[in-house]
Write a protein that binds this DNA or RNA. Structure first.
Lengths: 112, 112
DNA sequence: CGGTATCCAACTAGATACTG
DNA sequence: CAGTATCTAGTTGGATACCG
């Protein structure tokens, strides 16, 4: 995981996407951000199995990769907002497909 | 990674898909299998950065999850073929999207 | 509120060598 | 050919506590 883009693309562009999106919670975070700007603890509540450290790291990597934009509002108490960039919003169809495929898979698996 | 399906789906169906498909080479293997049945070393050559151990494990997990079917032909030398199941073929649109998105991402990233 | 720091367990991945 | 065995390095994730 986290192969440099330049190498990944030589093997296969699919690898690039896996490299950028492959963190355990990344696509779920993107999914929630597709419904609008969110604050840090809001995202944390939406992904209850991940702890703050994990959420922080994955958001920072998404930021580095230009998927997410982080805005700090200098207030007390602090307010930090996360929103998708244009590149992040371009993931909408992909997230929808993964969501549908995952729901289908879970339905079949749990029935059997 | 590799959250049990039953828990993942409670959080979000996207997590299910990530759990099943999130291995570093899994989607690339699926992509190559979409073009037809392949033998073990053929797949290995198509994913040159992964070693045999890694390819083996990821194929086995895909098999457990009903994405890939493994057929051993009792010959000398041995021949083992991997093909997608119906569930595996249902990933075709997803793989295409990831491929296109990855290519786009790499293009933008390398240019800048 | 939105994180960091620390420490630690578990898993992943790779190199290399070997086998039925 | 299609793996397995062994050993090791590196990454991910989690619990808990603390900070500006």
């Amino acid at each position: 995981m986290r192969l440099p883009v330049a190498r990944a693309v030589e093997v296969c562009p699919v690898e690039v996407a896996v490299s950028v999106l492959g963190g355990t919670w990344k696509l779920t975070l993107v999914k929630h951000l597709l419904t609008g700007t969110k604050r840090f603890n809001e995202l944390g509540r939406l992904v209850p199995l991940a702890n703050t450290k994990t959420v922080t790291r994955q958001l920072r990597e998404l930021e580095e990769d230009g998927i997410v934009q982080r805005t700090v509002h200098p207030e007390v108490p602090p307010r930090v907002e996360y929103r998708l960039t244009a590149r992040g919003r371009s993931l909408a169809p992909l997230v929808t497909m993964m969501n549908d495929w995952g729901a289908e898979f879970a339905g079949e698996t749990i029935r059997s």
